[in-house]
Amino acid sequence: MKLSDFRRPSTLKEASSLLKELGDDGLPIAGGTALHFLTTLKDKTAVDITGLGLDGIKDNGCHFEIGSTTYVSDLMKRRDGWVLCQVAKKMSTNQIRHMATVGGNIVSVFPWADFPVALLALDGRAEIIGNSDRLVDFDDYFKAQPARLFEPGDLLKSIKVRKLIKNEGFGYHKEVRTAAGFSMVTAAARVMVTDEKIEEARVAVGACTGIPRRLTDVEDAVKGIAVDWKEINKVVIDATKNRKWKLIEAQGVEYTAHLVQTVITDAIFNGCQNLNKEA
């Protein structure tokens, strides 16, 4: 893919009109780190969407609102009820963290992407503006490639992520060979723990699946079990034994399954170990 031109609109309205005018030829760009992986042969006109006020993190009481062009490096700082720092710190390399945006990581979802898996587990909504302003639950947003939800003229404005409440925890784990490498497996879990037992869980996995997936069978299976790594692992293995995973490079079916099950277990257990103790 080649960029044949670029435009720098000065307002959101201008950006939306421009993208509508350009149609399939327009490509909204913030960090642009994913351009390297776009395989379309068609030339595109880049529309720079930085500087339009789409960045920043707001604390809206019970949820955080994160602007789509917020840099991943800005997500690394810890706040009350904030857990996306865990994901941001593990994403790629320091340079990429300072270039990539959270929106860029979830508008075109590559198998190795970090934030789709984390957001599926955390739950929340994507705010899309342009032709019509709407909120899309993450369960729907990540059902297939999110690009299907965007018409020319639409932009991802922000994501809204619920804060963890008391006794909720979040764990994020990925398996990757080098910092700059593609993830082999990513897993995230939001758990509610009461009396040392998992009361509720949302579990998602990526890289080893075509698109990030919630594992509702695992979610059901871990309910009521003790916070113990071996117990959790036993349940995860049983719940996922019939699943087919995308094979890890140069590895077989058994090793892939073992690695996936271990990473899922780690994510759930880490979530149980990092509970929000405050109301």
């Binding site: 960029l3 670029f6 642009g32 780190t33 351009l35 390297h36 880049a46 490096s73 390399t93 320091n94 340079q95 990429i96 300072h98 270039m99 700059a180």
Partner: peptide, 21 residues
């Protein structure tokens, strides 16, 4: 964008010049 040899600093941040236009 894998090796970091092209790292420069833009507005105080380390970035990869091989991935930027």
């Amino acid at each position: 964008g894998s090796c970091g040899a092209c790292t420069i600093i833009v507005d105080g941040k380390p970035v990869l010049s091989c991935l930027l236009r």
